[in-house]
Amino acid sequence: MRQEPDPCPARHCWVSGAVDAEGIKRPGLLVEWRQAHGRWEGRVVYVARLRPLEAGGGWITVEEWLPAELLSPL
């Protein structure tokens, strides 16, 4: 039986430069690519810290377009 290619575009990635600016790569889900202003960007969904630990922490879900150089598979 012939296998069909996986139509799902979503892929795991690591996000550098998360909005919480803690300098930690966050695990993310890459859902789409686009080319804008002559460079590639990925639309990703990831979780970032809303408040510092000292203020009780708290996490939010972020969805944003990021330059390809901030995304990596490993």
Results as ranks from 00 to 15, higher is better:
residue 43 R to H: 13
residue 43 R to T: 06
residue 46 Y to K: 08
residue 61 T to L: 06
residue 60 I to N: 07
residue 62 V to T: 03
residue 64 E to T: 10
residue 49 R to L: 03
residue 64 E to Q: 10
residue 42 G to P: 05
residue 64 E to A: 10
residue 36 A to N: 11
residue 44 V to H: 06
residue 41 E to L: 10
residue 62 V to K: 02
residue 66 L to V: 15
residue 50 L to D: 12
residue 44 V to P: 03
residue 44 V to I: 10
residue 49 R to S: 07
residue 67 P to V: 04
residue 36 A to E: 14
residue 65 W to E: 03
residue 58 G to H: 02
residue 49 R to F: 03
residue 58 G to D: 01
residue 49 R to G: 04
residue 62 V to S: 00
residue 51 R to M: 12
residue 68 A to L: 10
residue 40 W to C: 10
residue 34 R to E: 11
residue 53 L to P: 14
residue 38 G to R: 07
residue 57 G to V: 01
residue 60 I to A: 12
residue 52 P to C: 07
residue 57 G to L: 02
residue 41 E to M: 11
residue 55 A to D: 13
residue 42 G to L: 03
residue 65 W to A: 06
residue 45 V to N: 03
residue 59 W to D: 10
residue 43 R to D: 05
residue 47 V to E: 09
residue 42 G to V: 06
residue 38 G to T: 07
residue 43 R to F: 13
residue 55 A to C: 08
residue 66 L to Q: 09
residue 45 V to D: 01
residue 66 L to C: 08
residue 51 R to G: 04
residue 46 Y to H: 10
residue 65 W to Y: 09
residue 37 H to S: 13
residue 48 A to T: 01
residue 37 H to F: 10
residue 61 T to D: 04
residue 34 R to F: 04
residue 57 G to T: 00
residue 67 P to C: 05
residue 34 R to W: 02
residue 41 E to Y: 12
residue 58 G to F: 01
residue 56 G to L: 05
residue 46 Y to V: 01
residue 47 V to D: 05
residue 37 H to N: 12
residue 51 R to E: 11
residue 53 L to F: 14
residue 41 E to F: 09
residue 67 P to T: 01
residue 51 R to W: 14
residue 55 A to W: 13
residue 56 G to Y: 06
residue 43 R to A: 05
residue 52 P to R: 07
residue 41 E to Q: 15
residue 68 A to F: 09
residue 67 P to A: 06
residue 39 R to D: 12
residue 58 G to Q: 02
residue 55 A to T: 05
residue 61 T to M: 04
residue 40 W to R: 15
residue 37 H to G: 13
residue 41 E to H: 13
residue 65 W to T: 07
residue 39 R to F: 12
residue 57 G to F: 00
residue 38 G to D: 11
residue 61 T to N: 06
residue 52 P to Q: 06
residue 34 R to G: 05
residue 67 P to S: 02
residue 48 A to P: 03
residue 67 P to R: 07
residue 48 A to H: 00
residue 42 G to W: 02
residue 62 V to G: 00
residue 36 A to C: 10
residue 44 V to A: 03
residue 34 R to N: 08
residue 62 V to Y: 00
residue 59 W to Q: 10
residue 39 R to M: 14
residue 49 R to T: 04
residue 61 T to E: 10
residue 36 A to Q: 15
residue 37 H to D: 14
residue 37 H to Q: 14
residue 46 Y to D: 04
residue 49 R to H: 05
residue 67 P to I: 03
residue 45 V to P: 00
residue 67 P to H: 06
residue 37 H to A: 13
residue 37 H to Y: 13
residue 62 V to R: 04
residue 51 R to D: 08
residue 43 R to V: 08
residue 58 G to T: 02
residue 41 E to S: 07
residue 36 A to L: 12
residue 58 G to K: 00
residue 55 A to K: 13
residue 61 T to C: 07
residue 54 E to N: 07
residue 40 W to S: 13
residue 59 W to G: 00
residue 48 A to D: 05
residue 62 V to A: 00
residue 56 G to C: 07
residue 40 W to L: 15
